[in-house]
């Protein structure tokens, strides 16, 4: 329990630091911070809205520390101000709309890459030195080092435009009403193939490489040799003896990857105009909608912290050494 208390207080501090960065950014830029934050949109806003926004972001004549305190209290109440781009929608609402799409995208792509990557990594380790291994392993690494922009654009050019197999943008067919119908669900699925596919290509190596390395290390362990010596079949040794143990580090990466990929999904959403928080961020940047840009970073921080906490939980559940006291 002490372990969790320590982790949670750490996450709290990390979140506070993210909020602090947000607070100081407009204030250290040259010029009037209020004008920087709300820019040209100020003209469109009523005096009452401007006052409310001042309030939210702590712009007042009070000393800096008081402004800061005011801002932090608002952030912790999840009052992130009003979006200037999607005026008069509050930032928190805009983000909530997008988060559903992003989590769908990232959740499914992470699960697919985890399964695919782990199995391929296992095979690469088992058939170490084979043609499969010497193609799959560097291949995965190379894929990982190609920017997602490039993967997305190439996928878009080939499947979306060249072959015209799949829709090139948005989360569903806009001529349909968002309802719980098969037609709508089918449209959502069809629109998600390209974004999820590109994310899988990008993510898979992250599971394949460590899985292979863990497995190779494990193959040298005595209990694997023992399993062999007992006359167990290759696949049995591979799955019940090796994979289970090699998976342990992968499982914790899984949770962390989730947080990381939410950031990585940004570009995918931009290229495919997918209505998640990444695309919203893109629009916010183009429109210089700073409250939304800042809110976006905060929600990303929240996702990262949640994912890390899940990783902690998984770690404790999976590794008995941590469960029974001791340092993590």
């Amino acid at each position: 329990m002490q372990f969790f208390a320590r982790r949670l207080s750490f996450y709290l501090v990390a979140f506070l630091i993210a909020a602090t960065i947000n607070f100081f950014l407009p204030r250290i830029m040259p010029g009037d911070p209020l004008a920087i934050m709300f820019g040209p949109q100020m003209a469109r806003m009523s005096p009452e809205t401007i006052d409310a926004m001042r309030d939210t972001f702590g712009f007042s004549d009070a000393p800096l520390i008081q402004q800061y305190f005011q801002y932090v209290v608002n952030v912790f109440q999840w009052d992130l101000g009003v979006s200037t781009k999607f005026f008069p929608k509050p930032v928190s609402e805009v983000l909530a709309d997008g988060l559903v799409w992003t989590l769908f995208l990232v959740g499914s792509s992470t699960i697919i890459s985890f399964l695919l990557g782990s199995i391929l990594g296992l095979l690469a380790a088992w058939f170490r030195g084979s043609i499969f291994d010497s193609l799959a392993t560097p291949g995965a690494l190379v894929m990982q080092s190609i920017p997602s922009v490039v993967i997305c654009l190439v996928a878009l050019i080939i499947f979306g435009i060249g072959l015209n197999w799949l829709p090139t943008g948005y989360g569903y067919d806009t001529s349909l009403d968002p309802q719980w119908t098969f037609e709508f669900a089918g449209s959502v699925l069809k629109h998600s193939i390209l974004p999820i596919g590109t994310l899988v290509v990008f993510q898979m190596a992250g599971f394949l490489i460590p899985m292979r390395a863990n497995m190779i290390n494990l193959l040298g362990e005595d209990y694997i040799t023992m399993g062999r010596a007992k006359g167990l079949s290759g696949s049995r040794v591979m799955f019940t003896y090796g994979a289970r143990n090699a998976l342990l580090p992968s499982m914790t990466t899984l949770a962390m990857a989730l947080g990381f990929v939410v950031g990585g999904s940004f570009i995918t959403e931009v290229v495919f105009n997918y209505p998640g928080i990444g695309y919203i961020m893109f629009q916010a940047i183009l429109a210089r909608d700073y409250p939304l840009v800042q809110g976006h970073m905060l929600i990303f921080t929240m996702v990262m912290l949640t994912a890390n906490f899940l990783a902690d939980l998984l770690y404790v559940v999976l590794d008995p050494r941590v469960r029974h006291g001791g340092e993590a």
Partner: peptide, 19 residues
């Protein structure tokens, strides 16, 4: 540890957007 749990790309985007 703090930098590791903060989301990299969004952090960069926010910095770049303000700059």
């Amino acid at each position: 540890n703090v930098i590791l749990v903060l989301p990299q790309l969004p952090l960069l985007l926010v910095l770049a957007a303000f700059l």
